[in-house]
Structures are given as C-alpha cells and as structure tokens.
C-alpha cells in the first residue's frame, strides 16, 4: 500500500523538490544520546586533570562560550609548535573526516589523539585520580561500571554529539522562512552560489564533507604539504579537508595556519586562489554578511554571544 502511494506521489510530484536545488541543507536535529553520559562527558570536557600537566582540558582549546575554538592562529600546546589552527568542536559530529588533513575518521579517534598527543595524558595517573575522586565513581558506575579509558572517551564523544548549533538564520531560511535572512544576506547567498563557493561549501554542514586542493588558480603561499604528509602521494599535495563554514563568523582567525584574521580577507583569498577571480569589495561585503547568517544557537544563545 505504502509503496503504491509513494509511487503515485513520485509520478504526480514534479521532480524538482525531491532533489534539493539548494546546495545547502538545514542542520539535522541533534542526534539522540544518553543524557547522563553527555552530562558526564561535559564534566570531563572541562576537567584539566585529563592532561599530563593538569592545566589543560578539552575546553582550553575548544571554548564553548566562544566559537568552540581557541581564537588563536595556532594553539599553544606544551608539545611545541602545532601546525594547524584549532577547528571548532561545534558540529564536528557532521564532518565526514576530522582535522585539516582529514586523517581522523571518528570523534573517538580525534578524542584519543587529542588526549594522547596534545594533552599528553598519563592514563594510569588519570584513572587513579578519577577513581579516587568524590564524584566520578558514582557517575561512571551506572553508565560504564568502572572508570576506564574507553568510558572516558565514550562520555566525551557523547557530549560532543550534543555540540550542534541548529537554528542559524540560514537554517530557518532553508526551511522556507525567507525573512530569516536580510535582503543583503540573501544577495550574499546568491553570490555565494554564483561565484561557486557552494561547489565545495555545501551540504548540511556547509563544507566538511570533501577534500580539496588549496590554490587551484595560482600557488597559495604555504609550506604545508597537505594530505601528502599522510598519504605520501603526489596528487595529495596541498589537499586539505574543506572546513565547515557554520559559525565561521565567530571562529576567527582562518585557514589551516590561522594567518587570516578577517572574513573579508578570507573571502578575497578564497576567490583568488580557489575560484580564479577577483571579487569587488561590495560582493565581498555581501558574502561576509551572508556568512554571519551561518551562526547557530547553543543552549538557547547565538554562538559567540555567551556571557
């Protein structure tokens, strides 16, 4: 019966709306997760005892009260100079790969790498301290039994799954609420599509779902080899994971090396190296206005608007 109805609808309906003519999609609702695990993950996310030095927590670099990043060109981690700008943790769950090289396939892997490489976690010590804690054993017991590395990672990842920012003006616009964008933002969106920005920055996360070469029209000034560093294949030179543009207005500075401070400059550079064109100041301003409409809400507040 259902199949017949679907078939009839398929015949009757015009083909357009079934395949979104828009390159952007509204953010899906946050995945359903265990509330207790997320709460435990949030506590761990802010706990500096997870780091070797006892001074660094996940939240040190992924500050939830700002854009989910650290606002620095490059992060300051005790392991010495770090090559890449900190990506935001918000909506990370919607990325098909993680990090600028896109070498990590899952949030679990990212959490493990961040803890072991960047935070230099000493698991034996951490587990001993958490087990001796007043609160943690009681929180872990019903969820994971004993406190171990797998449980910690799982709680962290569960919390990260809740770090999504729905209800940005663009989402409301895509759901049919035209007035959610100002006329200038709508114009900016049109330019965004016309110039071809949306060739790469598309989908629900507005990027974050493919690799692309940095510097298609002309060589971009960087010594970073891109994915070549991972794969060793010459075709991967200067190939990076395309970052998501959601909340881009509150996650300056920009690009893999954090050398670009403003959105205007970022847009102009993208136009020059990726699109092979030079945008007018007015077009850049319009697109930047549009980019401001990509800022979503976390816990009822617009991102970057936290107390």
């Amino acid at each position: 019966m259902t199949r017949i109805v679907v078939f009839l609808l398929w015949i009757v309906l015009p083909p357009g709306p079934l395949f979104s003519a828009e390159p952007l999609l509204p953010l899906p609702p946050p995945p359903a997760v265990s509330r207790d695990k997320a709460a435990l993950g949030e506590r761990l996310f802010h706990d500096p005892r997870l780091s070797g030095s006892g001074r660094l927590s996940c939240a040190s670099c992924h500050r939830l009260e700002s854009g989910g990043d650290d606002g620095l060109p490059l992060p300051s981690v005790p392991t010495g100079p770090y090559p890449h700008n900190t990506p935001t943790v918000f909506n990370a769950v919607f990325n098909f790969r993680l990090h600028w090289y896109g070498d990590l396939h899952s949030l679990q892997k990212q959490a493990l790498v961040a803890l072991q490489r960047d935070m230099q976690v000493d698991w034996m010590r951490v587990l001993k301290r958490l087990r001796a804690d007043r609160l943690y054993p009681r929180l872990f017991k019903p969820l994971y039994g004993i406190i171990d590395a797998d449980g910690i990672i799982d709680a962290l990842v569960t919390f990260e799954r809740t770090l999504v920012t729905p209800n940005a003006p663009i989402d409301r616009f895509l759901r049919g609420e035209t007035a959610a964008l100002t006329p200038r933002q709508r114009q900016g969106y049109r330019l965004f599509k016309q110039y071809g920005c949306s060739a790469c920055h598309q989908g629900a996360n507005i990027g974050g779902n493919l690799y692309q070469k940095l510097g298609i029209f002309g060589e971009y000034d960087t010594r970073d080899p891109g994915r070549f560093a991972i794969t060793g294949k010459s075709e991967d030179l200067r190939i990076f994971r395309v970052p998501s543009l959601r909340n881009v207005a509150v996650t300056a500075p920009y690009f893999h090396d954090g050398r670009v401070e403003t959105l205007e400059k970022a847009v102009a550079l993208m136009a020059e190296y990726q699109l092979g064109t030079r945008m007018s100041k007015e077009d850049i301003a319009l697109i930047v206005e549009f980019l401001h409409s990509l800022t979503g809400h976390y816990r009822g507040r617009a991102l970057g608007d936290m107390p």
Binding site: F19, A21, P23, F96, S198, Q202, G203, A204, N205, N209
Partner: peptide, 10 residues
C-alpha cells in the same frame, strides 16, 4: 547538476 551537495553520497 541536479544534486548540489555531497552529504547523500557520503
């Protein structure tokens, strides 16, 4: 050119 994003193939 009827589909403009890569979410569904991912």
């Amino acid at each position: 050119g009827d589909l403009l994003h890569y979410d569904s193939i991912n």
